Lab assay of single mutants.
Amino acid sequence: KLNEKEKELCQMVRLVPGAYLEYKSALLNECNKQGGLRLAQARALIKIDVNKTRKIYDFLIREGYI
């Protein structure tokens, strides 16, 4: 299910792929509902370490998901 970049992200932030996909889905759904997504909203949405949230958020922006 994951592409190579997503696999690298999961290894870097030490997330299991299932958890990453869950977080990605939640962030994309919220982004679609709101018409955009700020980091503060992402942090409130997924209750994990803020540094991990930041890396996931930055990755999703860089890859054009949000």
Rank of each mutant, 00 (worst) to 15 (best):
D49I: 14
S25C: 10
E6K: 03
I46V: 10
Q34E: 09
I56A: 02
V13I: 14
K5C: 02
I56P: 06
R43A: 15
K47G: 14
C10S: 04
L60D: 06
A42W: 03
Q11M: 08
S25V: 07
N3H: 08
D58F: 03
I48F: 10
V16H: 15
I46T: 13
N3I: 01
N29I: 04
L21C: 08
M12T: 13
I66H: 10
L27C: 04
L21T: 06
A19G: 03
G18E: 15
E30G: 09
K47D: 14
L28N: 02
R62W: 01
L37E: 05
E22L: 08
G18P: 06
M12C: 11
Q34P: 07
T53Y: 02
I46C: 12
A44V: 01
I61H: 11
N32H: 12
G64K: 11
V50I: 13
V13P: 04
I56F: 02
V16W: 07
K24A: 00
N3C: 10
E6G: 01
A40V: 09
N51G: 15
K5T: 04
L28A: 07
E63I: 02
I46R: 05
L21R: 04
L21H: 04
E6R: 02
Q11S: 14
R62K: 14
L37A: 06
P17C: 04
N29V: 07
K1N: 12
K55Y: 09
E30S: 08
I46H: 09
L39C: 05
Y20V: 00
Y65P: 03
K5D: 05
G35T: 04
L39I: 11
N3S: 15
A19T: 11
A26C: 12
R62I: 02
Q41E: 14
P17V: 02
N29C: 08
A26P: 01
K47A: 12
L60F: 11
V16G: 13
D58Q: 10
L15E: 03
N3G: 08
Q34W: 10
L9G: 00
L27D: 03
Y65F: 12
K24N: 00
D49F: 10
K47N: 14
C10L: 09
Y57T: 05
G18F: 07
A19H: 11
E6N: 01
P17T: 01
L37N: 03
E30V: 07
P17H: 07
K55V: 14
A44I: 03
V13D: 05
Q11D: 13
L27W: 10
Q34K: 14
Y57M: 08
T53R: 08
M12Q: 15
K24R: 06
C31R: 02
Y57L: 09
L37K: 06
I56L: 09
E6S: 01
C31W: 09
G18M: 11
K33T: 09
E6F: 10
I46W: 06
L60C: 01
I66T: 05
E30R: 04
L9P: 00
Q11A: 12
V13L: 15
V16E: 15
K1V: 12
C10V: 07
G64T: 06
R14G: 15
L39F: 15
I66V: 09
F59C: 02
C31P: 03
C10D: 02
A40S: 15
L60I: 01
P17N: 02
R43C: 15
A19F: 02
D58S: 06
E30N: 05
L27V: 05
G18V: 08
L21S: 07
A40Y: 07
T53W: 02
E8W: 03
A42V: 05
V13K: 02
A44F: 03
L27R: 02
D58N: 13
L27G: 01
L2T: 04
E4Y: 07
L39T: 04
G36V: 07
T53G: 05
T53E: 11
A40Q: 13
D49T: 11
A19L: 09
K24H: 02
Y57Q: 04
C10K: 02
L9I: 07
L2Y: 01
L2N: 02
I61Q: 12
G64S: 06
G18C: 11
P17Y: 02
R38S: 15
E4I: 08
N3K: 07
E63T: 04
Y23K: 03
A40R: 09
E8R: 14
K55L: 14
G36I: 02
E30I: 10
N29A: 15
E22S: 12
G36W: 05
